[in-house]
Write a protein that binds this DNA or RNA. Sequence first.
DNA 1: AGAGGTGCCTACCACTCGGTAGAAAGTCTT
DNA 2: AAGACTTTCTACCGAGTGGTAGGCACCTCT
Lengths: 237, 237
Amino acid sequence: MPTSRSAKASRADVAQQILEQATRLFAAHGFSGVSLADIAKSVGIRKPSLLYHFQSKDTLRRSVLEEILAHWNETLPQLLMAASTGSEQFDTVLSTTVRFFADDPDRARLILRELLDRPEEMQPLIEAHVRPWVGIVADYIRRGQEAGRVRAEVDPRAYVGHMTVLVLGSMATYEAVGSLGPELEVQESSAQLLERQTAELLRIAKVSLFRPRPVADSTTHSQRNQDFGPERPESDD
Amino acid sequence: MPTSRSAKASRADVAQQILEQATRLFAAHGFSGVSLADIAKSVGIRKPSLLYHFQSKDTLRRSVLEEILAHWNETLPQLLMAASTGSEQFDTVLSTTVRFFADDPDRARLILRELLDRPEEMQPLIEAHVRPWVGIVADYIRRGQEAGRVRAEVDPRAYVGHMTVLVLGSMATYEAVGSLGPELEVQESSAQLLERQTAELLRIAKVSLFRPRPVADSTTHSQRNQDFGPERPESDD
DNA sequence: AGAGGTGCCTACCACTCGGTAGAAAGTCTT
DNA sequence: AAGACTTTCTACCGAGTGGTAGGCACCTCT
């Protein structure tokens, strides 16, 4: 076993570079649209060197996917522990999910591609990595429905499914979709575009979940949020 | 030029079969995940015969895409003419879009893949085929905002973009996403699953657009739609 | 110094890819 | 029946694919 990692490009370092480039290229062109030589070239090595670190192309694909899911499993539970109330937990899951994919849209592209290419293989991964917090959100929604805060017609699990797809799809295609966006003449930066998309996703997710607050009358066209529910833990009936 | 089409498998017939199988296979495995031999085999011919009908693999890809867009351009304007009021037009565009992809989820998969694989190439196609009715919807939303019917914070074009992605993504991955759905023990048929998805998409699209109707108080948990706006053409302020 | 391991390389393999050449088979017109 | 045209076929091509064999430089430990 190696004892010191002083010299340049230790093993883990190269493997990490390969993973990064593979993620980028698979996300952009799909698994079968990228050759091992392409990936090796973008790392600056030859194909057999790549196969020294990952036994096969399929191993590399699985590693890329696992890295994303591992990162996900590191991120969410940690933030979730800080949230005590159900309302905070819901907010955490929602905004963390959106930001996780906004931080690196390649993640969304890659998972979306896997969902399209290998739905049967993704099914158990969804079970393992998504179910737990689907449970948290679903429970919160159910309690919200009992309290009258959440729209009765919402099916908790179906809601989570649709929001997941909305986030994945929006982030995966944010350039093409964003170009439909507001009629700005000025060019928006990618960061700005992503920020706007993120805010809008959160809005849609909340508004399609929570019942509107009962407001006496709405004669003014004020921009006040009428049904952003989770900031108000106690329902009023 | 051919004068009679009596015999079996006229030219157009074979070309149509090729298009259908190519659509199916490209949707399932992606453009680079399918070989011309695969497509030819599923039609029951050899590869050179396929290349007799379509000069190259890329020609075939473009033809598949064009066929879908052509079908789309046949469907929508026709239904749109029947709709007189802005509210009806909005409803038509929304439900037609959802049903167009629910009718054949392969359409959604294929377009989503193109969006991922070739965003630059898709941009002008989006311009040409999506802009017109984005305009209709955006105008309707803007008028709705002036009348106070539509949430002021909605950006019309961004809204259309997100709804498009939501529909595409939901239909493209409806099996995987639907499996997260309600906790039914009974197996749901694909048709039922798609029907449920369709209804939920329409719900989300409307609820995230229209302002809730002012209701005096909501002490009962009635399932009455509180903010399905478009059935009520005149606003009340 | 030298043994052993690590990481990368060149060279090569069998196979598949999209695409072409050109002959054979069918079909229609006269 | 004969010619002309359309459609399909077999055979083949060069390029590129994932993957292997084996050597070579380098580092570390004894």
